[in-house]
Amino acid sequence: MANKQYQFKLVLLGESAVGKSSLVLRFVKDQFDDYRESTIGAAFLTQTVTLEDQTTVKFEIWDTAGQERYKSLAPMYYRNANCAVVVYDITQASSLDKARTWIRELQRQADPSIIIALCGNKVDLAARRQVLQEEAKKYAEEEGLMWMETSAKTGEGVTEVFTAIAKKLPLTAPPPRSGRNVAGARTGVDLNKQASGQGQNESCNC
C-alpha cells in the first residue's frame, strides 16, 4: 500500500473547446474503476496517481473557463496552484497562441515554483494538424515546460501527463495545505486579543 500521500492543486487552463474538461474527465474516469462522481459537478475533480515507489499523489483539479471574457478571473483559480496544465488543440494554431499567453501569465503571476505542462490535445485528429510537434516542443523547451500530446477521445497520453507531473512535483517537501485557496485574503480573528469595543460593553443577548 501507499506509504506516503501528497496532495496538490492543479489548475487547468486553455482556450474553450480545446478539450480541457474532456481531458480531465478522461483522466479521472479512466484511471480507476472506483471513480466516484464529484459531489457538485465536473468543474472540480480529484484523482490520485500512484507512483512506482508507492507514493500517492492526489490532484485537486481546478478547471477554468477558457473564454476570453473570463480571462481576468483566472488568478482566482491559479492562486496557490502547485501545477498547471495548459491545453491547446493541435488542429487550431490559434489555440497555441492562447496557450502561450496563459503560460506567460503564469510565469509572471503564479507561484514561482509552479510546474507547468503544455499539452497538445486532439491527436486523434492528426490529419487536421496545424501545430507541428517540433514547434510546440521547441517552445516548451525554451520555456522550461513539460510538453506532451494527448487525445481525450482515445485516452492516449492522458494518464502519462499527470503521472509525469506527479513525478516532477517536489515530493520531498510537500506544500502545507494552505488555507488560502479561496480568493480574498483571510484576515482571521485573534481570539486571544482583546477586541476593541465589539461586544465589550454589552452583555450577550441570550
Partner: peptide, 29 residues
C-alpha cells in the same frame, strides 16, 4: 465575507473552495 471570515479555514478548501472562488469570480465579472 462572512463565510470567508468565519468558516473553518480547513473547510473552504478543495471542492468547496473551488465553488466559492467561482462565485467570487462571477461577482467580479
Amino acid at each position: 465575507e462572512f463565510i470567508n471570515r468565519f468558516r473553518n479555514p480547513a473547510k473552504i478548501q478543495g471542492e468547496v473552495g473551488y465553488y466559492l472562488s467561482s462565485l467570487i469570480g462571477a461577482i467580479s465579472f
